[in-house]
Nucleic acid binder design. Structure first.
Length: 804
RNA sequence: GCCGGGGUGGCGAAAUCGGUAGACGCAAGGGACUUAAAAUCCCUUGGGAGGCGACUCCCGUGCAGGUUCGAGUCCUGCCCUCGGCACCA
């Protein structure tokens, strides 16, 4: 037998990558595909550190699925792109002192090289970058459609402001109330006019549709919690002067226990309801709250503070006058910005009432000490409603107050409208022109894109205005509506808007006159399978769903859910911690690919643990995958050395194992259980080598199953076996149940549930046959010990349990 | 605090419906080949006890109970851990 050449992954991989490129192997026919399959993975942010092992883990898992679909006969479209705008890039550019316009293309180039090297089945004709004017032209176009439809609107909102930076800082950049970049400077709250998208209008639909999406339960739960639907009622508390204070509550059954009211410090009625002698302290309190930054107001110290306004309102249930307070534990953004405080049955109200000596009344008896929040109880101290359950009382009290015009059933969401304004440089300018006469006017579509001007020093300055305002030729522009002197909007849009529609662009990247081609979109969308990390379970996925819904309503797309099937992969950690630059534990795959080859490294990452759970990166164990691939290499070469006619029939046990393997690898690859699929292929190859039966008929189906995992190696060996076409033109092996289930089976014999012996019988043996055999087994007899068998439990082809 | 994962050998893990716990792989130990090493191949490897031996028995899936002929898997109550949300009324 001729000697087998040694496996040199570097050479093999370079050769096949070159050939795939030359033959356009990964570029499906987009206009007339027979069986379109849109295999999407979350596009990366091209960081300066390069593609790290977590990216590669995600992309490998997604690529395996795409290649698997390809082998099943689909025309698979697997695009890739770059999410390159955003504060992330801008901050990095600031820290190294290089302009992002220069930095980003370099990073993208490095990513491209790495992405080619790992062997992804990417259609590079359709690469995109969100920073490309040909792309963000359409990001701006989407903004304009939403603006025209009234879904984009302006409103005031609080932001974090660093007085040193003279700039808005993101919540993540505020550390305990101090600026990340200036640890001695306290961040303040500032209120700015900003652009919002009315996502709350879609809350109910975003929630309802979740039921029909093929997503993991955990991701759907995250979205549900984020949307945060609460059902309850709005109740009216009137003041003697006739002011009406509306509060939202999920517990109208506890209204008899409402002993005071609290308004958020920003509540518009605070001024009016403040008695003159209380005005100084109320104003001081409001100033103090405003001085806090957005972050510490929300997550910081939770000790209760507040001030009495000096006035009273009538409890609609009891009719008694209760004091009105203001306190920052009540948030203006949720509900009506005012609450009825029920200290007996709410922990926060209880703390506040204790602090300020306000009355605490029990109105629901639960058997637990106050405050008790359980709804398993009976009403007390609630007049005619005493004795009712919370459920019944909820309904009846709302009806009773509604009849008096003091209550309305209501639903509230935790979800807020999406603020898309960023007072930053590195993003798509929001396409709006302000005119003193016409107000905010959309940039006419034919003038898109509003290109981001090159500003060499893009840092914010002492003016406190976004850097874009300093570029005068850009900033001043004629009003498209009346022709008068206007000014451009200087904020850019949120990166999440860039990524909320990229999947629509991929199939249509060659068209510059439309955001997406209607025919292409009909053919390819919605996405067949979307694979990405759970860190995007909420924002990115929710925003994409919302944008798609809005676009459908406006007639631009034909579906309302972009990702009917989503799979979330796990996280690769290092030494028990998330990989991050600050921890210094980021693993870069390049050196491993260099040393072991992309195929080995791909499979190693998939073998590390379940794809959907992730795992801890440790380099021990890579060698096990390499040994496996070496075995496959040797076996295939040996099989190739046999003359074609001499390929012997598979031994029966190997044939059985082959079909069991096909069954398992098919099912496991489909469900992304790649670690166990790899284990099954290893078992098969081990058996093949044990039998010395590495024939063509035995190895070829294995190579096809291995191809999604180790595409270069599979191609090479396929060609060594004499095939001229790519292995990806081959078809996934067929599973034959009758071939998987041949031969004898071993049946476990238990006595009283403990394993005491084993008997070998033909498949499908009857219970009587197995019992008879089992009772002849010495060990079994010993434990039956002459006692009568009271009962037998028989599981076909698996187990017999004798109860004595 | 609320919501969701998860806890199995020295390590990563597997066990599709309640049916042989630890597949597959790493590491470790022993052996073969070799002048030697690497590579490769073979054997052993959850813990404990017994036997010259083919083997045999007991214990074992975070903890405590329960259901069942049978529980890693189901139920009840805890502990630990990871992730998300967090003064959301």
């Amino acid at each position: 037998m001729s000697p087998v050449p040694s496996y040199d992954p570097t050479a093999v991989e370079a050769c096949w990558q070159e050939r795939w490129g030359r033959e356009h192997a990964n570029e499906p026919e987009l206009d007339r595909p027979a069986l379109p399959f849109y295999n999407l993975m979350m596009f990366p942010y091209p960081s300066a550190e390069g593609l790290h092992v977590g990216n590669m883990f995600a992309f490998t898992g997604a690529d395996i699925y795409g290649r698997f679909k390809r082998l099943q006969g689909y025309d698979v479209f697997e695009p890739i792109g770059f999410d390159a705008f955003g504060i992330h890039s801008e901050n990095y550019a600031l820290s190294v002192g290089t302009h992002p316009a220069k930095l980003i293309p370099q990073n993208i180039e490095a990513f491209r090289r790495q992405l080619r090297r790992f062997g992804g089945m990417f259609d590079w004709r359709h690469e995109l970058s969100t920073t490309d004017p040909r792309y963000y032209k359409w990001t701006q176009w989407i903004f304009l459609q939403l603006f025209k439809a009234g879904i984009a609107f302006r409103k005031k909102a609080a932001v974090n402001w660093c007085p040193k930076d003279m700039s808005v800082v993101a919540n993540e950049q505020v550390i305990n109330g101090y600026c990340e970049r200036h640890p001695d400077t306290r961040v303040e709250q500032r209120v700015l006019e900003q652009w919002f998208f009315r996502i709350t209008q879609y809350a109910e639909r975003l929630l309802d549709n979740l039921d029909r999406l093929d997503w993991s339960d955990s991701t759907r739960t995250l979205q549900r919690n984020w949307i945060g639907k609460s059902e309850g009622a709005e109740l009216i508390f009137e003041t003697p002067a006739g002011a009406k204070i509306a509060v939202f509550t999920t517990r109208p059954d506890t209204v008899f226990g409402a002993t005071y009211l609290v308004l958020a410090p920003e509540h518009p009625l605070v001024d009016q309801l403040t008695a003159s002698e209380q005005r100084p302290s109320v104003n001081a309190y409001r100033r103090e709250v405003q001085g806090k930054d957005v972050v510490s107001r929300r997550v910081g110290d939770k000790t209760k503070t507040g001030v009495f306004l000096g006035s009273y309102a009538r409890n609609p249930a009891t009719g008694e006058a209760i004091p009105i307070w203001t306190a920052d534990y009540v948030l203006m953004e949720y509900g009506t910005g005012a609450i009825m405080a029920v200290p007996g049955h709410d922990v926060r109200d209880f703390e506040f009432a204790t602090e300020f000596h306000l009355p605490i009344r029990e109105v629901v008896r639960t058997g637990e000490p106050l405050p008790s929040v359980s709804q398993d109880g009976m009403l007390v101290n609630s007049g005619e409603f005493d004795g009712l359950s919370c459920r019944d009382a909820h309904r009846r009290i709302v009806a009773w107050l509604q009849a008096k015009g003091l209550a309305t059933p209501q639903v509230q969401y935790r979800l807020h409208d999406w603020c898309i304004s960023r007072q930053r440089y590195w993003g798509p300018p929001i396409p709006i022109i302000y005119c003193d006469r016409c107000g905010p006017v959309g940039v006419p579509e034919q003038d898109l894109p509003v290109e981001l001007p090159f500003i060499p020093d893009f840092r914010p300055d002492a003016s406190g205005v976004s850097p874009l305002a300093r570029h005068k030729e850009w900033y001043y522009v004629k009003c498209p509506s009346c022709g008068a002197q206007g000014r451009r909007e200087t904020d850019v849009s949120d990166t999440f808007l860039d990524s909320a529609w990229y999947f629509l662009r991929y199939p249509s990247t060659e068209f510059d006159d439309r955001p997406w081609d209607p025919q292409r979109t009909k053919t390819w969308l919605p996405v067949s399978t979307y694979i990405g990390g759970n860190e995007h379970a909420v924002l990115h996925l929710l925003y994409s769903r919302f944008v798609t819904m809005a676009l459908q309503e406006l007639g631009h797309v034909h579906f309302d859910e972009p990702f009917p099937k989503l799979r979330a992969h796990g996280l690769i950690i290092k030494d028990g911690a998330k990989m991050s630059k600050s921890r210094g534990n980021v693993v870069i795959p390049d050196a491993y690919i260099q040393k072991w080859g992309a195929d080995t490294f791909r499979m190693y990452l998939m073998f590390l643990g379940p794809f959907q759970e992730g795992g801890d990166f440790r380099e021990t164990g890579i060698v096990g995958i390499r040994r496996f691939l070496d075995k496959v290499w040797t076996t295939a070469h040996e099989a190739a050395a046999l003359t074609p006619g001499a390929s012997p029939a598979l031994p029966p046990d190997l044939e059985r194992k082959l079909h069991q393997t096909i069954k398992k690898v098919t099912a496991d690859t489909e469900s992304l259980d790649y670690n166990t699929a790899i284990a099954a292929m290893m078992e098969y190859v081990n058996l093949m080598r044990e039998r010395g039966a590495g024939s063509r008929g035995a190895i070829e189906p294995l190579l096809v199953m291995l191809a999604p995992y180790a595409p270069h190696l599979a191609e090479e060996l396929w060609s060594v076996l004499g095939h001229e076409q790519s292995i990806f033109e081959a078809r996934w092996p067929a599973y034959h149940a009758e071939l998987a289930a041949t031969g004898d089976v071993e049946i476990v014999v238990q006595v009283n549930g403990k394993v005491r012996g084993r008997v070998t019988v033909g498949r499908g043996a009857t219970e009587q046959q197995v019992v008879a055999l089992a009772l002849r087994d010495e060990a079994v007899r010993k434990f039956v010990d002459g006692k009568p068998v009271r009962k037998t439990i028989y599981v076909q082809d698996r187990l017999l349990n004798l109860v004595v």
